[in-house]
């Protein structure tokens, strides 16, 4: 049989398959019969492609068949949508265990809290390095923080709602950027250390006994949302560090494969961080700025203790590898 006859004979089926590639991508037009038809036409087109050489089809037709089969293949094997059961198990069991044993999260935690407490101590204690806070953050910056908190008398509800949105926008954005910029490691480490040192310094500076009203406002403001927000920073940096180190320490894999595997594993950690940023933003928007007569400081303290307890339950109790046989 000549090629032109084969083509003449097969062309209606190819045309139908090509047309179906367009219609079947819409969910509404995916009936049982159509799916059956589609699968049959796809198999036939595959067979035509496989036999193209023995049919002696011209090169242009073979190219056409390649693209037709590729297009149909992409319709047949579709991206999977979210598997809710799997997602629940991932969130409740897999992710906390993964974070608990993740060395990069440990490194980021040590680095962040180490720098944070060192600079907080140096800024608070005026005998070792009296001008530490001014040297590190700058006198102007300290002055503006001070004046911001000394004049801070709470916000109204409209501002609260707006600021809640702003905190999600700003903090989660910074968290994701920190995660992404860890890929070449150094920029991410600089970002993390910079944040740790400057936040720590301002903490130490504002907690000095001579700060008066500003210090008191600062303390009541940062108490409630602190645990969630600072943990989120550490988590996103740890997840980023996992990816950054993956192409340096490959554990015997090719660099590219190591990058892919580790990126897949670190995604739940960074999404966990985003969730924490969002929760922190709600607290920071509505609870933290409330003045003493509406939400007293002890209540903010309870919120902080409660959120810390939540974090402990999630990361330690759910995260501890209870079942030994898994290892």
């Amino acid at each position: 049989m000549k090629a032109s006859e084969v083509i003449e004979q097969r062309r209606p089926a190819w045309d139908r398959l090509e047309a179906m590639c367009e219609t079947i991508s819409k969910k509404s037009s995916r009936s049982m019969n159509q799916v059956n038809d589609f699968a049959m036409l796809y198999r036939d087109a595959c067979a035509d492609l496989a036999l193209a050489e023995s049919y002696q089809l011209p090169a242009g037709t073979i190219e056409y068949l390649h693209s037709l089969v590729a297009k149909a293949h992409n319709q047949l094997y579709r991206s999977r949508t979210v598997d809710w059961q799997g997602l629940f198990e991932q969130i409740v069991f897999e992710t906390p265990r993964q974070i608990f044993r993740e060395p990069c999260v440990h490194i980021a935690t040590l680095l962040f809290w180490g720098l944070f407490f060192c600079s907080a101590f140096l800024a608070y204690n005026q005998s070792y390095w009296p001008t530490f806070a001014e040297d590190v953050v700058g006198a102007e910056q300290l002055e503006s923080v001070n004046s911001m908190y000394s004049s801070f008398e709470g916000r109204n509800w409209s501002e609260n709602a707006f600021m809640m949105g702003f905190y999600i926008f700003n903090n989660a954005w910074i968290g994701l950027s920190c995660f992404v910029s860890m890929l070449p490691i150094l920029p991410g480490l600089v970002t993390l250390s910079y944040n740790a040192i400057s936040i720590g310094t301002i903490f130490g500076y504002m907690f000095r006994p001579d700060q008066g009203l500003a210090g008191e406002h600062f303390r009541t403001f940062v108490t409630a949302h602190g645990p969630f927000e600072l943990t989120a920073i550490v988590l996103s940096a740890g997840a980023g560090l996992r990816i950054g180190l993956s192409w340096l320490i490959t554990n015997g894999m090719r660099r590219r494969d190591s990058l892919i595997v580790n990126a897949r594993n670190s995604l739940p950690i960074v999404l966990c961080a985003v969730a924490l940023f969002v929760m922190a933003a709600f607290i920071e928007g509505f609870i933290s700025p409330a003045p003493e007569n509406i939400i007293p400081w002890w209540f903010k303290g309870i919120v902080a203790i409660g959120s810390s307890a939540l974090l402990l339950v999630y990361f330690v109790i759910l995260g501890y590898p209870w079942t030994r046989n898994e290892i």
């Binding site: 090629a3 011209p58 090169a59 073979i62 068949l65 693209s67 990058l259 990126a263």
Partner: peptide, 21 residues
Amino acid sequence: IGDLIAGTMVVVEPVRGSKAM
């Protein structure tokens, strides 16, 4: 870089070649 990390690639889909003789 995003593709390298996620293990993905981008392909173009329009039908090439010709089915007419």
